[in-house]
Amino acid sequence: MKEPKHELKEQLENVLKSIWLKVYEEKTKAIASNYDEQLINELLSKKYVFIENGEIKLSEEGERVARKVVRLHRLAERLLSDVLGISEHNTEISACLFEHVLSEEVEEAICTLLGHPAICPHGRRIPKGECCLEGASQIRRLIFKLSELNPGDEGEVKYLVADEPVLQKILTLGMLPGKRFRIIRVFPAYVVQLGNTNFAIDKTIADTIYALKI
């Protein structure tokens, strides 16, 4: 049995997350009447939110908490799908649990391990944490940008973070998730062996390819 207090925290966080997604990603309004009154009152008393014309808005603190929950959810998705290879359905369930329990330290460890990913497996942006800005860390990493690998390293493409024209170009060359490659050279350009052919790409493109180092 979960402690009731814990359960309440989780519910509050879920409401905050939902408001955050509405306001910051869907760019619509969070209407107060759509939410459980008791929970909203609780959030009001904690000064996480305030209400204007029937519309819920996040306070600075509330926004911080919400953003963190979103971040943890999406980091968890990345970890589960890229590294552990869990199916999409199970990923979602577990990620919803993870988002409420990860400590700061664990969060940083996972983020670093995953190479500070910018997007979740569904292509939504992962809000940045402090670790992403600092960079340096002692933790062993698994996921790297292609541009961070060295000659001789082998990797498996995990995902691409690029805008449409660049993405299209990488796709037409067959650099798709799941493909194995080997780095031949990193200067003067990145030379990558994919299947039986070598490609040369510049840093801009190498920065968009995230891979599991083998």
Partner: peptide, 9 residues
Amino acid sequence: PEPVFLIEI
């Protein structure tokens, strides 16, 4: 925008 470079060798 600056061009990007990608070529099959």
